[in-house]
Design a protein around this nucleic acid. Structure first.
Lengths: 210, 210
DNA sequence: ATAATATATGACAAGGTGTCATAAGTCAAT
DNA sequence: ATTGACTTATGACACCTTGTCATATATTAT
């Protein structure tokens, strides 16, 4: 967390600094980012940076948390839009992320360099966490009648699976610079597989039985 | 790839250097590793390091590739052992990785700091790649009759899903320092969900219907 | 006006990386 | 054996980064 001094900063100075942070973390991933660049861009002396943040990581996760909070909000909006259908929700969720334009480079760097802490920040959306109550809230918003779980633990795992697959698809999209269309097609294919299950059930469906 | 000079090194000198690399990359993740530490431990001058490797990354991936080749081999042995049952194979595969003792710290650092390049190196096991022919070979070894796919592309996605979920479980095990038993229990639960599918199919099973 | 507190500043120590001129080996051919 | 061509070894060095700290400057309360 940034220090109080940061939050006491006059609006415009803070805004400039935040912009400089986003700029640097969009240029390169966290570990290649340089505080020198940030302070140069923000026009503040180096010492000041350390009045505001513990270190580079602190600043990075301040920005990331903000993005994630925003994404989190969008996610919940989508669930309502799709009447609790998790799969329709995820599909548009995926689309929103890969079509995001303003902060593509920031996201690209974050996804291609997913340390556990970064992953953990993102998957907070799908998990119970001190800062939120998402599992409970999700549980109430989801159309659970179509989902294959029989306990809260299973629901949790189900969501972990979905988020892992989703993240992997986003990473692949960025890494291989897939066109949005193609990325979406592949993601849909995986969602379909996830829904129907990875083992063949003859009595249920005809896919692949002929 | 290390430079030729590295491969021309006398056996024992190369072995010492490799040990020093493993030691440093076990101590801290790639981006915190220090070449100074490595050369100090190996007892070679700093300049020599650059005769052998392009840089830190080069050395890291040389070591990682070696580990992955070994894991890859174990994976194929398991498939044969389980007569092509992908799920039984994955279960023991998971177990082998989390129970590995000699190089826990190396793996821990690699999994908790999964850049795309690291992930990509690991998932080479489940993917077609210049250096291997795994999709084709897998295809022939797997008991595909129990798997729910109807094209090579679908099989590929099926494997991507399994590997994403597997990696996520390994990461969680390391991050939360779960006991092996607990990690395995959770992984099994997710495998079960994956097999039966995330949506409920009343006519097929009784889980969660009562 | 004064003291107490909060913020700003940039020089600096410590440590990291990659390079390069130079030294030292190795080997083949005369 | 000596020469020359080539490969390998070496550590000082330039350059860059980070985080700290003594000092200067605001700000606020009394």
């Amino acid at each position: 967390m940034p220090k109080v001094t940061f939050f006491n900063l006059p609006e415009d100075k803070r805004a400039t600094l935040i912009l400089s942070l986003k700029k640097e973390f969009s240029r390169v991933p966290l570990y290649d980012a340089s505080i020198s660049n940030i302070v140069k861009a923000a026009g503040i002396p180096r010492g000041s940076f350390y009045q505001y943040f513990e270190d580079k990581e602190d600043a990075f996760f301040f920005i990331l948390n903000d993005f994630v909070a925003c994404i989190n909000h969008q996610f919940f909006t989508l669930i309502k839009k799709y009447n609790g259908d998790l799969f329709d929700t995820m599909q548009e969720f995926f689309q929103i992320i890969i079509e995001e334009e303003e902060n593509v480079h920031f996201f690209r760097n974050a996804f291609l360099n997913m340390t556990y802490r970064i992953e953990s920040t993102f998957s907070r959306i799908f998990k119970e966490h001190e800062t939120n109550n998402n599992l409970k809230v999700l549980s109430s918003l989801l159309n659970t009648s179509i989902l294959n779980f029989s306990s809260e633990e299973e629901l949790n795992h189900l969501l972990q699976i979905i988020s892992a697959v989703t993240f992997r698809n986003i990473v692949e999209k960025f890494a291989k610079e897939l066109p949005n269309e193609e990325a979406l097609r592949r993601y849909r294919l995986e969602l379909t597989l996830l829904k129907s299950g990875l083992v063949r059930h003859l009595e249920r469906e005809s896919r692949g039985t002929s």
